[in-house]
Design a protein around this nucleic acid. Structure first.
Lengths: 186, 186
DNA sequence: GGCCTGATGTATCGTCCTGATATATCGACG
DNA sequence: CGTCGATATATCAGGACGATACATCAGGCC
């Protein structure tokens, strides 16, 4: 879910929902934006888990601070807790399938600066392997069916294949750069 | 939802769910695969709407053919109805926002051969405009924040931007090809 | 002053998808 | 004859998406 991006952004500075959403849209570029329909429920879950808490906003009224009942115009500012910081570190250091798919990889890369170089390399290699497999799968499927496809389906599949191949090359560069100049960890 | 790809595939030949799913995974290449959790409910909805019906499978038993109760091993073969064929044609000829986003465009392109050249051009132009706007948004956001971004976030955003730019160029080529050699409609 | 628009800000709802899981049959291979 | 992988259908819990509702606030405009 939105665990990593929310915790990651709150690690930089306390923030309210609206601002989180704006930052999320630009942060991930290719990896789409998220709607309020997922943002606010996520914040609630993170609150319940204790990873974040609510900072007293200057204008906030006392009494009746339940989720959804707010007397004055409440700007709800969220902040990362100590447990949340630990949890975020654990999530970012996670290697395995989750870290290699589109969303898992994208969100982790966006917060790579907060990880050790060793972990960064493992995630990059895992993602590269995943994308290589995907590209090879598309390539062989295309080779098998090429002559049966109409012009448009063919264009669609070739474009998809080239996109995958390009990502593999990009990852290769990232890996080489990482090996040559291993930035210090967080 | 899965309306277009299911109807489109069934238009080529009657098929059962499992085969639909296999064809869907390869058909769309870049535009991800779909799970059974969305496929079977979609089939049910399409049945209820009357766009498809169930062909008698040779081995199928009589009585109790309700969805979910099947006496013998039931290979349920689906077929496009006349209304379904009309509905599909209407969907494919739809121009507007829905036809320009990732999913809407991908699925329509895969069945472009069943559309008139005029519609094809409109959809390609719409998609191109959409992607151009997206790329420009990323470009200006990147220009504004470039110096504040760490190396990894920068790489992520630049890769996303290049991917968007590449798609615009690809669409430009498709449009030119379409204008030069307007394939006949279906 | 009075009005409107657009940005800020929080929140929920219906519809649908995803990933996991359960169940059963079929063909091939040793 | 047993077992393994492919074929095949189906459901469930959890959660995402898009739309929408509702406020406040700053600024322009007459």
């Amino acid at each position: 879910m939105l665990e990593i991006p929310i915790l990651g952004l709150l690690d930089e500075a306390p923030m309210h929902g609206y601002e989180l959403r704006k930052r999320l849209s630009t942060l991930l570029g290719a990896f789409h934006a998220f709607s309020y329909g997922s943002l606010y429920p996520s914040l609630r879950r993170l609150l319940e888990a204790g990873w974040i808490d609510e900072e007293d906003a200057p204008e906030a009224e006392a009494g009746a601070v339940g989720f959804g009942t707010r007397s004055r115009r409440g700007k709800r500012v969220y902040r990362l807790t100590a447990e949340g910081k630990e949890h975020l570190a654990a999530l970012l250091a996670e290697v395995g399938p989750d870290a290699y798919d589109d969303e898992g990889f994208g969100t982790r890369l966006a917060f790579f600066a907060q990880t050790r170089s060793e972990i960064r390399l493992q995630i990059l290699e895992g993602r590269k392997q995943r994308m290589t497999e995907q590209a090879d799968g598309m390539r062989s499927s295309l080779a098998r069916t090429r002559e049966r496809l109409d012009r448009y389906t063919l264009q669609l599949q070739e474009h998809g294949l080239e996109t995958a191949d390009r990502e593999v090359r990009w990852l290769t560069e990232l890996i080489e750069t990482e090996r040559r100049g291993p930035n210090p960890g967080p």
